[in-house]
C-alpha cells in the first residue's frame, strides 16, 4: 500500500514537472462531451450497466455514471466508448 501511494506521488510529481497529459500518465479517464449529444469516454474498464437513461462504467478508481435519455451506444472498443443521446448528468462515484 505504501508502495502504491509512493508510486502515485511520483506520478503526480512527474505530471507537474513535465508536459505529458495527465490522463496518459495517471491512467485517468478522458471524457469529451459535445453539447448534450455525445459523450466520448476513454480509459474505461467495462460496462457495468446500460439502459436508455443510464450508463454505468467501471473505472480504475470507482465508477462513472452518465444519466440522460434516449441513450445509444454508438461504438464500443476496449478502451473507448461513444454514447449518443441527451446527456444530463455525469457523476463520479467513489468506491
Amino acid at each position: 500500500m505504501t508502495l502504491r501511494k509512493w508510486q502515485q506521488n511520483v506520478k503526480k510529481w512527474f505530471v507537474n514537472h513535465s508536459e505529458m497529459p495527465v490522463d496518459v500518465v495517471m491512467d485517468l479517464p478522458r471524457i469529451t462531451i459535445i453539447g448534450q449529444l455525445h459523450i466520448y469516454i476513454e480509459n474505461h474498464k467495462g460496462v457495468l450497466s446500460f439502459s436508455n437513461e443510464e450508463l454505468r462504467l467501471s473505472m480504475k478508481q470507482g465508477q462513472l455514471l452518465v444519466k440522460g435519455s434516449g441513450f445509444v451506444l454508438k461504438n464500443i472498443l476496449p478502451e473507448e466508448i461513444l454514447l449518443e443521446g441527451v446527456i444530463k448528468n455525469v457523476l463520479f462515484i467513489d468506491e
Binding site: 446500460f50 439502459s51 441513450f71 445509444v72 451506444l73 461504438n75 464500443i76 472498443l77
Partner: peptide, 23 residues
C-alpha cells in the same frame, strides 16, 4: 447483457449501435 458487451469488446468483436429495449 452488459457482461456480454464487455466480453465482445474484450474479444475484439465489433459491436455498435447498442440500444436497450427492456430490462
Amino acid at each position: 447483457t452488459e457482461p456480454f458487451i464487455n466480453l465482445c469488446v474484450k474479444r475484439n468483436i465489433a459491436i455498435w449501435d447498442i440500444k436497450r429495449r427492456n430490462k
